[in-house]
Design a protein around this nucleic acid. Structure first.
Length: 128
RNA sequence: CGGAAGGACGUGACCGAUCGCUCCUGCCUCGUGCAGGGGAGGAAAGUCCGGACUCCGCAGAGCGAGAGAUCCGAUUGUGAAGGUCGGAGGGGUGUCGCCAGAACGACAUCAACGGAAAGCGCCACAGAAAACAGACCGUCCCGCGCAAGUGGGAUAAGGGUGAAAAGGUGGUGUAAGAGACCACCGGGCGGUUGCGAAAGCGCCGUCGCAGGGCAAGCCCUCUCUGGAGCAAGAUCAAAUAGGGGACUCGAGACGCGGCUCGCGUCGUUUCAGCCUUUCGGGGCUGAAUAGGGUCUCGGGUAGAUUGCUUAGAUGAAUGAUCGGAGCCACGUUCGCGUGGUGAACAGAAUCCGGCUUAUUCGCUCCUUCCGUUGU
RNA sequence: UGCCUCAUAGUGUAACGGCAGCACAACAGAUUCUGACUCUGUUUGUUUAGGUUCGAAUCCUAAUGAGGCAA
């Protein structure tokens, strides 16, 4: 019984099929490269794709109500969308919400994600 | 007049810009591009009660199980629901009226409102007795005794116990009492071309009263009910294994290696014809069989599509930023300023009706309480 | 999304409709030079709200919470 809800995310404008299917989630988790921030934890794995792909997970253990889960997913998705052009390509990223994301605003989540991305060496300073 | 609480009703929100997601339509230099349009709720929630829809089952009857229970009407297509609304009837509880009790009347309020003389079961403690009634304290009569008392009998009015003790009040009556008798009230049974659409009410007659409560214990009566649920179901359909069919090889087949050969494993059966024979058999050919190969068929798993919707996803869209209006809080020189908020509860997954629960705001309405002022 | 089950003290569990117990835990005391063990005593509860009943943990209804099953 899976009590976490996963979402496939469409992120950058040109490629809408940025999907991580079940096998891709498994490879990302199998790569065992994770970082933790205030609002989320991030798992990263390299991939052969030309673009960045992201998956978002919010566990029912953390947020019992559907409103909170949807809110967390949208915040993480928006944070990835805003910062995606600055990231390196060819990676799979899985974002897992933590309880600190509750009552946070979008800009705070974005800052948190940027900080994690810099630590994970995903940041590409040339762009922007 | 102000405030608080509860309930009812209404409202859950606007405009512009930029970026982004999803679905539909149209267009073309087919990029998954451009343009246009649609995109959460009153509760989407809980899943409490129903319906649509889908599949499975289905001769008839009975048993069992479950659900419901006063009457009438309405609920803007029909139907269902333990739904809602209105009216009616009979009850429970509380207050008041009558000196008091019972009864009765008035007002308010409540409810899942058939049956307790069909049967079973239960009714703790207290109390003499708790259900084919009974006699603890009493009351009265008779006998014995100086007396205290004791023996026999009558009685069920009074006391006491209890949630509940075989109608209530008043009187007659009596040794004392008792529906034993009477009046009023209540009750049972029967009748009713009285009233009402009906439940029922009224009236008449009769019975001194028939004998407690619990059916949201089992049960009885009447009525209704097949089961599962979109993760229902339908369509397409890999790989592997197994099954059916056709063709083919066939006494050999398969595997391995150093591949005209060797090794290992399994099999080496039956029938017909011909040849041969030392009559034991042997050989050849054909057919069948074991087994192998190729093709094919159907079931069906993963998976995909559909069911799926003028929101319609499917590891599941409805978001972010800025400005304005609005709202809230604070300050105020009453012009406004500052801060907060996109409000609270909460996020569709087949659809619809009802119920319940959560909750913002309101020059709205009702009830209760508190404060101030006036009479 | 649909379906099902359960709720008793801090924890684990009992209780034909009749004063709600047991074990561990906690606290206090005794014992000991001190602690442990042991002994004695105490505290704490029927998830909530209505209803049926003389009387409800138990019966009924609704709510709340927890858990499970089906791809």
């Amino acid at each position: 019984m899976v009590d976490a809800t996963r979402t496939i995310e469409t992120v950058p404008k040109p490629l809408r099929l940025n999907r991580l299917v079940s096998a891709q989630y498994k490879t990302v988790f199998g790569h065992k490269h994770s970082l933790y921030g205030q609002t989320m934890s991030v798992w990263v794995a390299p991939s052969s794709d030309a673009d960045r792909k992201v998956g978002v997970i919010v566990s029912k253990r953390i947020f019992r109500r559907a409103v909170d889960r949807n809110r967390a997913k949208r915040l993480m998705r928006e944070a990835f969308r805003q910062t995606a052009p600055s990231l390196v390509t060819g990676v799979h990223i899985v974002l897992i919400a933590r309880s600190g994301i509750k009552d946070k605003k979008c800009t705070e989540v974005m800052k948190d994600f940027e900080r994690i991305a810099k630590r994970a060496k995903l940041w590409e300073p040339t762009v922007r």
